[in-house]
Design a protein around this nucleic acid. Structure first.
Lengths: 221, 221
DNA sequence: ATGCGATATATTGCATACTATAGTTTGTTG
DNA sequence: CAACAAACTATAGTATGCAATATATCGCAT
């Protein structure tokens, strides 16, 4: 039987997942402001589900650090501070640099090619001034490398950090810009390190690629 | 009114927290074996609470990577593989080395003294052959440094990794040993780096202190 | 005997009802 | 009027019941 090749899992999302995704999006984009109090009843009404999946979503958001629960009392959206930018980026840099080191030894030619394609796409987005697309492609590039390193813990932690970084940008910049040509070049430096299987160089290039935008953000704010 | 000085918060734990703690302990110590199927009804009975807090505990455990949920079907304890040891320790090394770097610049004299005290305690536990106490003191030492680095993301990730490492030791060794005199010396090397505020040296010493036991574990298995 | 379909069973997912608790208001007493 | 306490309100925490879904069982036809 001929089955569509690019068959996407129908994404039959549970109410809990829908609630989680929506609330997380609202927190990231600032619809739900830092410090804002969240009521189970209120959200259950506006999302059209009962309190149960909302509660479950809250608990997952708490683990992710997007809300704080004061037991028996309330749950609020966590605050964002300028000082977080260093904490977020330096942690991400440590993880991604380590992942790049490992990936340098595991990566296969077609995976390198995929990175080249992604970075070309990224460059187009930068040149044509599409900051949101650029940010997404940049994240994809990094995500791919972390995947190649084949370490689920790093994948999970780094996704969590990306979420906070996105929120940070929304809160303080109202836009996702920080992708520049420098970033494109740094990506190519990482790719070159992979091509010659130089783990130390990959580590350093990756670190650069995260520390530089951090410094720029710090100055911008 | 005279109130006890060392008054501990009464630890009025919710049913959810009790369930989470107990199930996590059972998974770490192997009471609940990798691959084992978990039934909400069964656990709710044995813990004397309803299914709701059990469900909530399951979801938190899933985020932590201790159980895997197959929606609508079942939830099982995740598997542990020998290859995980590298993934766990290399990630922890990256995080702690980065934390040590930051801590080297922030640390205060009394905090350094606290580390010296902890490491002395650790050395006593190693010498008197109390592996469990040694493991705990070792973890405290590392935890203190991560705290000094003042980065909640690193704290959270590293606690999560510690849990997995503990489980790994239980599953493959049935005991928590891997603390040696070498570890004590490495700790002192970290402390010396702090005393002279040498971030790079702290980074390297910390990395050593995690990579060495990883290699030893790899050989042991 | 095997493969398919229908029915039964087990288990999760969600909704609702109930309980406990923190915070607020109000009343009472010195 | 002030201070305390009791009742009231709002909200989170827990239990239970119902619905949806996946798996297993059984029967039937080929």
């Amino acid at each position: 039987m001929p089955v569509p090749q690019n068959f996407k899992a129908p994404a039959r999302m549970s109410a809990k997942e829908k609630a989680f995704d929506q609330i997380q999006r609202w927190i990231i984009d600032g619809t739900l402001q830092p410090g804002e109090k969240l009521l189970e009843s209120e959200l259950s009404e506006s999302l059209g589900v009962s309190r149960t999946p909302i509660r479950e979503a809250f608990q997952l958001l708490e683990v992710k650090g997007l809300v704080a629960t004061y037991p028996g009392k309330e749950t609020k959206v966590t605050e964002v501070e300028k000082g977080d930018i260093f904490k977020l980026y330096s942690t991400l840099a440590a993880l991604h640099a380590s992942a790049a080191e490992v990936a340098a030894e595991l990566i296969r030619p077609e995976q390198i090619q995929h990175l080249i394609d992604l970075n070309t796409e990224f460059e187009r987005a930068v040149i044509s001034d599409q900051p949101y697309l650029a940010m997404e492609t940049d994240e994809e590039f990094h995500h791919a490398i972390v995947e190649f390193a084949n370490n689920p813990y790093t994948v999970s932690f780094s996704e969590s950090l990306q979420v906070h970084i996105r929120r940070f940008k929304y809160v303080f910049l109202q836009q996702p810009i920080d992708s520049t040509q420098a970033s494109v070049d740094e990506h190519f430096a990482i790719i070159r390190a992979f091509q010659i299987r130089d783990a130390a160089a990959a580590h350093e290039a990756m670190k650069q690629n995260l520390i530089r935008p951090m410094r720029e953000l710090e100055h911008l704010i």
